[in-house]
Structures are given as structure tokens and as C-alpha cells.
Design a protein around this nucleic acid. Structure first.
Length: 524
RNA sequence: GGAGCGUUCGUCUAACGGUUAGGACCUCAGGUUUUCAUCCUGGUAAUACGGGUUCGAUUCCCGUACGCUCUACCA
């Protein structure tokens, strides 16, 4: 399928060929990045890389009251962890710097002025209290939230309702004011969304959005259009929650005289909470026992902590993979995709329209698959920090890699290696004697004592030899091997899990195995 | 309230007018593993509803229901 939509009077795919692909992720630094945010990053990144274009990070910090220290650094770190590093950003710089809107403040005013001069915007002096009053006055059961629109703007204090002298006087007096877009009365604004196809709004339904705030900062609406234009953005992807304000942006592109340069839009479906309905929020994660943020995030103002996929033990490759297929697929049964695969196969047209409920069980499945298929040395580097935290000493790196190779298929999350592989590095600290005790008797005790001697005498680290010793001994003592395997396993690893007992004994060394058995015998 | 967007197994999805509606997760039943996990085999389970259009609708159109998003000097 070709890219749909029009770009000026030309078909979009012609534009796409002529215009360098430049996309941006434009978060406001108000907190950690959650699943939906990272997926938006991912789709932007994939689209850019697929078309040999640029991926830009632009920080939309026009609202000082919501600014959260550390959030920008967190976003950068998250993108790095995911391997979705932007080509241009506040950190990396680039030809269209600065990439923080607060640092671009001076650039926006001239465009607001241009809009006023052209009659597409006006100055409004209404105080918050006056607007509040208007809303109360016009509120009816049928219209619970009246808008500042063509129906009421004549009754408010603005450059449309006031005389030029009054306006000038107010301006000279430094009266706080905003700039609002003047929405046309009854005009259909239609555009083609790459995911949804043709989408249409009537301007009578949208209000006169504030473009420039009283503090001189632009609102999102003005800033996004100006910056996308100035930064030569070719495709603009954002969450579905932006769809209703798309007509404002469309009109702005037109009024500013940039219609032919307008990016193609795609509004991404939302990620929904697993239980009930509604968009996934940061509160859902830890409430339901899974992370929603990419990495741990603690809000410096509230001290509220949200855990992250990284710290829960997800591989970045798995995280990216599971995000990619949340609302997108390549049309085949393939579910496991590397980033290279994704870049090759991604297409915006195959993104789903409907929102997707997040399913943590499936997310873990992706991680388990990635762990099973991952390179041992790579896994070792990721597991090491968890071992250090758990107090597990690793002397020999190649030994660690070997152990990871034989235990990785039993691990779903990285911390699982602590249990599944920890006993290869140190004797278990707790031994599940409760599972041995009920059937424990002197015959078994004697057997294990004899086994220790036999093992010591053999001085062998060959699993087959150890198994033969074990079986011969059970035979001579008239015992069933099956009744002794489980106790031995528990003595070696601490519980009912792990690879074959003789493989374990051989791997940790017969001396260590004997020591563990002897220690366990003191507990029974 | 209004506007917009959406709706296939419990969940994520495939099927761009013709399939016994496919796959994956979950779950269930077997098998392998003298443990656990992996792995293998198999099962249950879906086109929201009502009208059209059509020889034929999951697919196109209309309506209804339901859900979501927006309706801030927040993004």
C-alpha cells in the first residue's frame, strides 16, 4: 500500500521521495517515560531508520509549572537503554538547535504576530476569573463545558470585541494577555492520517485555542507547528489523544503559509490498562504488579516511585520487541523481531487503529524468548549486577557464561538467574529440608554418607561417572534411585529445581558437592 | 452534553468480498524431563447488534449499542 494522503497538490508518496524523512519525538519533561511514550519513540525511530531519515528528540518544556528536574536526563537514558538514540537532541545538538522549546521562546512570538496581522489570531485580555465566569454563565445541562469560541468571543475582552484604542491602551498598560487562534465559523478541515485514512472535523466544534500564553511562552499548538516547520519535520507521529486538536494544527500550517511543507500525520492507538478500560496510566503498573515505566523513576516532588522494565529484568531487545507488536504486526505469524528486523519490516500503514490492552504475561514471554536466544556473554554482562546485589561472587567470567548457557532456558526475567544459577557459585543458604524430612530415615542417611566417600574416592568431575557411582551404591544398598535423587538435588541446590543432579555435581566439582551433602546431613 | 476515533477467541492479533475465521499469550489435557523449567502433541475459546449493497460479507455502506480520547494560559 502506498502512503496515503496529499501533500499540497501532489500525491504524498511523491513528496516522500523528494523530501528527506525527519521525524521527532517531543515529550514534555514531566516525569518518567511509560510504555506508550516509548512505543511512540520506537515507531518514530523505526520509520526514520527505514527511510534513511533523521530521528529527533525535542523537549517540549513550555509549561514551567509542570517541569520536573531530572526528567529530561531520564528520557535520554531511557532512549539509550532501548537503543533508540536520537540523531539530534538537546544533548547531541544538531543543525536546528536548540532542541528545548524553552530555549526557543523568542522564535514563537513573530509567528503569533504574523497570525494576528493576517486576521487568523487575536489578542485576548480575559483573566482566568473572567473565563471561569463565562464558563459558569454559559454552562447548561446540554453544554457542561462551554468553549471560548466564535459564539462567545464577541462577549469577551479581546482585540475582536474591543476598539483599537482600548486594545492599545491595555497593551501600553502591560495588561496580561494571550493570543488566540480565530477559528473559522463553519469549515470542514480534512486530512489524511497514515493510520486512519481520511479524518474530518468541523471548525465550529473547536475552540479558539490559546497560542501564546501570558508569560510569552507558546502553547503546544503553536510550538509544535512552528518547530516542526523550522526543523523540517516530514512526518509527525503522536498519540491518538491529539486527534481532536489536529484541525488547529492543520489550520495553523495553512495560515502561516506553510501548507505545502506540512508533515504527514499519524495518530497512534493508545495502550490501555489490562483490567477495565482506559488508557494505561503510571498508577496502574505497580497497582497490578508490573512496571509501566521503561526504567525506575522517582518523582522528585512527590517521592512517588515507579518501577521500570529495565530493573524488573527485561532485556532492552525484548522490551522493544514487545512494544513493537503492541498495535503492529508484519502480516505474518512472526512475533520475535530484532531491531534490525523491525527497521526492515515496519510500516505505519500496518499499525492498528484500535487501542491495545497491555498484557504482562505476554510481555514476560517475550523476555523469556529473548533470554533463551541471547548470547551467553551478553547475558553474563546483564546478570552480573544482579549477582553483585545478591552477594554472589563471580571469579571466572567464562564459568559464568557457561552456567548462564545451561540455566537460561529456565529464566523469564534476569533476576531469575539468582535462584536458577546462584547455587553454582555458592552453597545454598537455605535448604528445603522440609521436603526431605518426611521420608528421611537411617538407611538414607547411611547411603549419603557412603556416597560422599565414594565421590571423594572417585575424585571425578564427570557426570556419567558420578551417576554410575550413585546407581551402583543404590543397588548394593537395596534402595531406589528415585527416592534419593530428590534429596540429593535439594542438598546441592537448596530446592526442587535446576538441571540434572549429576551435571550440577560435576559442574560445581565433586569436592564441593560432597561438602554440600555433608552440610545438609547435619540439618536432618 | 458535544465532537472525533474505535470494536475478530479472556488478551495481542491474521484474514485488504469467497478460509472448516489462522497464529501467539493465558488456560486445560497428554508426552518428555526420576525435580523444576524448557520442549513436543492436542483441546476449549471470537467476527458487538440490526439493517442494507452483493451470487457471496469479519471485510463495503447506514443505524444502534458499547468503549475510549478530547472538550485548560497541560502536553
Amino acid at each position: 500500500m502506498f502512503l496515503r494522503g496529499t501533500c499540497g497538490k501532489y500525491k504524498s508518496y511523491l513528496c516522500a521521495m523528494n523530501k528527506r524523512v525527519r521525524v521527532r519525538f517531543a515529550p514534555s519533561p514531566t516525569g518518567g517515560l511509560h510504555l506508550g511514550g516509548v512505543r511512540t519513540v520506537l515507531f518514530n525511530y523505526l520509520f526514520a531508520k527505514k527511510h534513511g531519515g533523521d530521528f529527533i528528540l525535542r523537549i517540549e518544556d513550555t509549561d514551567q509549572s509542570r517541569f520536573v528536574p531530572g526528567a529530561e536526563e531520564y528520557i535520554l537514558q531511557t532512549l539509550n537503554w532501548c537503543g533508540l538514540t536520537p540523531d539530534e537532541s538537546p544533548l547531541a545538538g544538531g543543525p536546528y538547535a536548540p532542541y528545548r522549546q524553552s530555549e526557543r521562546k523568542a522564535m514563537y512570538k513573530q509567528y503569533a504576530t504574523q497570525l494576528i496581522d493576517a486576521g487568523h489570531a487575536y489578542i485576548a485580555f480575559d483573566t482566568p476569573a473572567e473565563i471561569e465566569e463565562m464558563r459558569n454563565n454559559f454552562k447548561t445541562p446540554e453544554n457542561p463545558s462551554p468553549q471560548y469560541n466564535q459564539a462567545v468571543r464577541a462577549k469577551m475582552r479581546n482585540s475582536l470585541s474591543l476598539s483599537k484604542e482600548e486594545v492599545d491602551a491595555l497593551l501600553v498598560a502591560n495588561t496580561p494577555h494571550v493570543v488566540r487562534i480565530k477559528m473559522p465559523d463553519n469549515e470542514d478541515v480534512t486530512f489524511t492520517d497514515m493510520i486512519r485514512g481520511e479524518v474530518s472535523f468541523n471548525t465550529s466544534q473547536v475552540d479558539d485555542k490559546v497560542l501564546l500564553k501570558a508569560d510569552g511562552m507558546p502553547t503546544y499548538h503553536l510550538a509544535v507547528v512552528v518547530d516542526d516547520y523550522l526543523m523540517k519535520i516530514s512526518h509527525a507521529f503522536r498519540g491518538e489523544e491529539w486527534l481532536p486538536s489536529a484541525p488547529v494544527h492543520l489550520l495553523l500550517w495553512k495560515y502561516l503559509g506553510w501548507a505545502n511543507d506540512m508533515p504527514q500525520w499519524a495518530h497512534l492507538p493508545l495502550i490501555l490498562k489490562p483490567d477495565g478500560n482506559g488508557k494505561l496510566s503510571k498508577r496502574d503498573g505497580d497497582r497490578l504488579g508490573f512496571p509501566v515505566f521503561a526504567m525506575d523513576w522517582t518523582d522528585p516532588k512527590t517521592n512517588e516511585k515507579n518501577t521500570g522494565f529495565k530493573e524488573h529484568g527485561f532485556l532492552p531487545e525484548a522490551f522493544v520487541n514487545l512494544l513493537a507488536v503492541l498495535g503492529w504486526n508484519d502480516g505474518t505469524d512472526q512475533e520475535l523481531f530484532s531491531i534490525t528486523d523491525l527497521i526492515e519490516k515496519f510500516s505505519m500503514e500496518r499499525v492498528h487503529k484500535g487501542g491495545a490492552k497491555f498484557n504482562y504475561e505476554k510481555a514476560k514471554w517475550f523476555n523469556a524468548e529473548w533470554i533463551k536466544n541471547a548470547d551467553n556473554a551478553y547475558l553474563a554482562s546483564l546478570v552480573q549486577p544482579y549477582f553483585e546485589e545478591a552477594g554472589i561472587q563471580v571469579q571466572d567470567k567464562s564459568y559464568l557464561e557457561k552456567i548462564i548457557g545451561i540455566t537460561k532456558e529456565r529464566c523469564i526475567l534476569l533476576p531469575d538467574f539468582i535462584i536458577q544459577a546462584g547455587f553454582y557459585f555458592a552453597a545454598p543458604t537455605s535448604i528445603d529440608t522440609a521436603s526431605i524430612a518426611p521420608k528421611w530415615d537411617d538407611n538414607k542417611k547411611n547411603f549419603f554418607e557412603a556416597l560422599c566417600s565414594a565421590f571423594e574416592n572417585s575424585n571425578s568431575n564427570d557426570p556419567t561417572i558420578l551417576e554410575n557411582i550413585f546407581k551402583e551404591l543404590t543397588a548394593t544398598q537395596g534402595l531406589k534411585p528415585g527416592e534419593l535423587m530428590l534429596p540429593m538435588r535439594i542438598m546441592l541446590v537448596g530446592g526442587k529445581f535446576g538441571p540434572g543432579v549429576f551435571e550440577i555435581a560435576a559442574t560445581i566439582g565433586v569436592a564441593d558437592a560432597v561438602a554440600r551433602i555433608k552440610h545438609a546431613l547435619t540439618l536432618l
